[in-house]
Design a binder for these strands. Structure first.
Lengths: 239, 239
DNA sequence: ATGTTTGTTATGTATAGACATAATGAACAG
DNA sequence: CTGTTCATTATGTCTATACATAACAAACAT
């Protein structure tokens, strides 16, 4: 009477993962060969292969021809970071979300804009600053440049009903992104956040590309005491 | 004359990924059925299946029986965060790494320790504070508690030649972790970092479990101007 | 109109077999 | 002793096939 609900390759995967996570198979342990595991679970080698392929993709094992698969040393440095959409984040906390576009200006890219977008030559850009509020209290300050060469339709877009970030996700289909997280002190440029000067803040910079073209660069500033980023690394959840 | 070096299922995957990332197939687009793709690439359905399974695991497509696979809306919030090992991080930047254990004490868990380890009942813990240096200049302050119930051998461990973090990775085979990143102001407890008071700092807290037992909680404090975390999200790299 | 049954379709899982490829180690030749 | 060759082995990829399952849609009954 086996559990028919869970597919076999997942059960095999879970069994091996359990051995590794419980310490039964410490790093360096040589995992039984695919054919041996297939015999153990009374199934085809391909089924075991699928399980091992997933474990390798998650970084729990390392596979080598001939010598077989071995348990890898843990690499704690890789974690899935969840950077939520600001609106969703505020509403998840049970607050009313609002935002206000403070400045919206089309200009030829300055030197600083080129650095932010990692552009060599100046192109027209849309520069935006924006204040996000939770229950009418300042929550996050946004400073953004959008390349009008990559997203020309941004020039005539209205951000009355949709924040620039949400608009871009709808407008630019899929993209690669790079995040940079650092700590900064509140200064005059962040007066909209109504903080005591030199309050520590979390600065999240996000650079986005689409088909290798720079799309946008945002700088989000959160008051440090009011916000934290949470990242989880749990091998069993991945895949 | 096909490229024989790259397996077919990867080429199929790359081709579809390219369509999605370039905007050719915007979110919501219905992807050709597995059998159609198999006909296109003149291969078995299983090969296409493998490619689509990987794309689904990376979150680029969503698969539904009967209706077929569709391109998902991008989810920028998920990114792989690289939290490097401090020694590797310092040495990668070309500095000489050193560390100094400032305090090392075994005690019954205090109320605060229980909160940090998410324990209900107090157990013996090892409390450590540690200063990490790059070229003999303070680089990072570490404040750690280790549950001696989960890792009894920590009681007699020497951290002369290996930092507590590195020792734990060797000692505790595999684990799940949770990271919390926030901004704090430097205060008296961080005097070892030799910072001007109220300098913004990046605080990284990491909680680690092994087989559902709390193992350790670290608080790492980096001077904010000297450090940043970088996370990347590029679908083509994953898997 | 509303609910149920039934068929169709596309994906999900699994098998068995085939050949490719990389790594290891043993036998061999210099 | 050293370098080469070659057989062995375990994984990597791919095929062809089979049946399961979820979802939708059309036909049917109430």
């Amino acid at each position: 009477m086996e559990n028919r609900a869970i597919p076999l390759h997942r059960r095999i995967r879970a069994a091996i993962e359990d051995k590794i996570l419980s310490g039964g198979w410490p790093p360096g342990t040589r995992i039984p060969a695919e054919t041996e595991l297939a015999a153990t679970y009374n199934c085809a080698r391909m089924t075991v292969n699928k399980a091992l392929t997933e474990l390798a993709a998650d970084g729990l094992i390392e596979r080598r021809r001939k010598s077989g698969s071995v348990v890898k040393r843990p690499v704690l440095q890789s974690a899935v970071l969840e950077i939520h959409d600001i609106k969703a984040e505020v509403e998840a906390a049970g607050f009313a979300y609002r935002y206000r576009v403070e400045r919206q200006k089309v200009r030829e890219a300055t030197r600083a804009d080129c650095d932010r977008l990692q552009l060599d030559a100046p192109v027209p850009v849309l520069a935006l600053t924006c204040l996000h509020l939770a229950d009418n209290r300042p929550f996050c300050w946004e400073d953004r440049v959008i390349s009008l060469s990559a997203v020309p339709q941004a020039q005539d877009a209205s951000f009355d009903h949709q924040s620039p970030g949400a608009w871009l996700i709808d407008e630019v289909p899929w993209s690669a992104a790079e995040h940079r997280i650092s700590a900064v002190a509140a200064d005059a440029s962040l007066s909209a956040l109504e903080l005591t000067p030199s309050t520590p803040c979390l600065a999240i910079e996000r650079r986005t590309w689409n088909a290798d073209k720079p799309v946008t660069h945002v700088r989000l500033i959160y008051p440090g005491d009011a916000h934290a980023l949470v990242a989880r690394f749990a091998p069993s959840k991945a895949g």
